[in-house]
């Protein structure tokens, strides 16, 4: 702990580390007595107009913030949770009036949909799933995938929402006989889904048929987590994060890795290791990938951004106002980066 703090204080001023690639656009603070756990951006429809809104989640409250003309944010809805704390926001693309959240203590026990009734705009919540939920992800075409249970007793389900946020139908995917850690969508192939498992396999599903198409073993760091994949020229390019990777003298501290997989032969090769620039230390704490950019909060409290096409770190954001970063998300609605701190502060940067 003390070593990490020393490294933060030794960092040069923000401007010299971050030459213009991240510009602060606006910031606000969510006044809450509980710890801030997640932040996200989404489109919310009010009076037939869609607005880019921000969602903040504390352990006991989820809030929706709408933009005002003056680059300020106004809280318009709050949902309260008194029994089970909120763990994360689960954005579902293409749904405009609904937020999904995962609740639990250490592990996810419930997934709930948060919405407003059309008549009086009052906040409502609906229980979607409950049980020993291991992984959940919102997918394009208004779908939500979740895995419940472990090993052989695992159920992988896809739920599809209607445009106004109602749930339409459910479909099962063939479960692998190993516990799923995370799901990742495949850009350029809407009917494919990837999952990483606890024994470092990547599994590939056909979302239309529910078939388990392939299991690919990846020779990488333990407990690697897939964030996103791209389908190009018969190959899958997969972005993994490495929360458990140890720093090595040869590479430094590896945070993300770009891996190429031939799904036909189940062979894979690492093609890019995203390591921290010299002088930086810390491991991956949490992160987000969109398009060809990957952002991570490090255990040092710094946010780092990599351009996966350029192959190097393009921005570093040291702790602001004396506080470490704890959350980082791409807005999804545009090229903005949301960075959050435990006390409820949210900073919005243009990348």
């Amino acid at each position: 702990h003390s070593i990490e703090q020393t490294e933060i204080s030794d960092l040069p001023a923000q401007d010299s580390l971050n030459p213009g690639s991240l510009q602060l656009v606006s910031k606000f603070k969510n006044p809450s007595s509980s710890c801030s756990v997640d932040v996200s951006a989404m489109w919310w429809e009010r009076a037939a107009a869609k607005e880019p809104c921000i969602i903040t989640a504390c352990e006991d409250v989820v809030s929706l913030w709408k933009p005002l003309d003056t680059l300020q944010w106004k809280k318009v809805h709050t949902w309260h949770f008194t029994e089970v704390p909120v763990l994360q926001i689960v954005p579902v693309p293409d749904v405009y009036n609904l937020i999904c959240v995962a609740l639990g203590n250490l592990e996810i026990r419930e997934i709930r949909a948060l919405l407003c009734s059309s008549g009086d705009e009052s906040e409502k919540q609906v229980l979607l799933k409950s049980g020993n939920i291991k992984a959940v992800l919102g997918l394009t075409k208004r779908r939500l995938v979740s895995s419940i249970g472990t090993f052989c007793n695992q159920q992988v389900q896809i739920m599809t929402f209607t445009e106004d946020g109602g749930s339409k139908d459910e479909q099962l995917l063939m479960p692998p006989d190993e516990t799923i850690l995370a799901f990742a969508e495949v850009q350029g192939m809407q009917d494919a889904l990837l999952g990483t498992t606890t024994v470092n396999n990547i599994v590939i599903w056909n979302l239309k048929t529910g078939q388990l198409l392939k299991k690919v073993h990846i020779d990488s760091y333990q407990a690697s987590v897939c964030h996103r994949a791209y389908s190009e020229m018969g190959l899958l390019f997969v972005v993994l994060s490495h929360p458990c990777a140890k720093e090595s003298q040869a590479f430094g501290s590896p945070v993300f890795q770009l891996l190429v997989i031939n799904p036909k032969t189940a062979q894979s090769v690492g093609i890019l290791l995203c390591c921290l620039p010299p002088g930086q230390a810390g491991r991956f704490l949490e992160g987000d990938v969109t398009g060809h950019v990957a952002a991570a909060v490090l255990t040092s409290g710094t946010v780092a951004v990599w351009d996966l096409l350029l192959g190097h770190c393009t921005a570093l954001l040291p702790p602001a106002s004396g506080q470490r970063w704890s959350l980082v998300k791409w807005s999804g609605t545009d090229s903005h980066l949301l960075a959050g701190q435990k006390d409820g502060s949210v900073f919005i940067y243009r990348y």
């Binding site: 056909n206 048929t209 078939q211 198409l213 392939k214 031939n262 799904p263 036909k264 032969t265 093609i271």
Partner: peptide
């Protein structure tokens, strides 16, 4: 390692694996 280690590549891998995998 190099991409040569990946073996023969098929542009239609998704359809081919879907026809081979159990329903």
């Amino acid at each position: 390692c190099s991409t040569a280690d990946l073996g023969p590549i098929s542009l239609n891998w998704f359809e081919e694996l879907s026809s081979e995998a159990p329903p």
